[in-house]
């Protein structure tokens, strides 16, 4: 069947999602929100892979998505552990207060 939804549109959606993710990372102060925004960005890139894979009928896009999933799982587990530890040590999740590593 023919469809008016081209790959470009899907890619545009992925791009919009990615920009939303970046915006989230930049504008939020709470680390948890930043981590959520990072997840959104990962999803966006996953979407781009799936779309490309579907466009060419190749499995590689989905393979990459699976790798992204694995990476996201690892990243989230470490990130959340760090958040826990930061909260224990600083009693705050405000990224602007956690700037001890200034040069």
């Amino acid at each position: 069947m023919n469809s008016s939804v081209s790959t470009e549109i899907v890619m545009l959606l992925a791009g919009l999602l990615f920009v939303l993710g970046i915006t989230g990372v930049v504008i939020r102060k709470n680390i948890i929100f930043m981590l959520l925004s990072v997840e959104i960005m990962l999803n966006a890139s996953g979407l781009a892979f799936i779309a490309a894979g579907a466009r060419w009928g190749q499995p590689d896009g989905q393979v990459m998505f699976i790798f992204i999933l694995a990476m996201a799982a690892a990243e989230v587990s470490i990130g959340l552990a760090l958040i826990l530890q930061i909260y224990h040590q600083h009693k705050s999740l405000d990224i602007d207060k956690l700037r001890e590593m200034n040069g």
Binding site: I22, V25, V26, M34, I95, D96, L98, R99, E100, M101, N102, G103
Partner: peptide, 14 residues
């Protein structure tokens, strides 16, 4: 260079 190391994550992301 060390002046750019503000310790603020936001600046790094930017």
């Amino acid at each position: 260079l060390s002046a750019t190391q503000t310790g603020s994550l936001r600046w790094y992301i930017m």
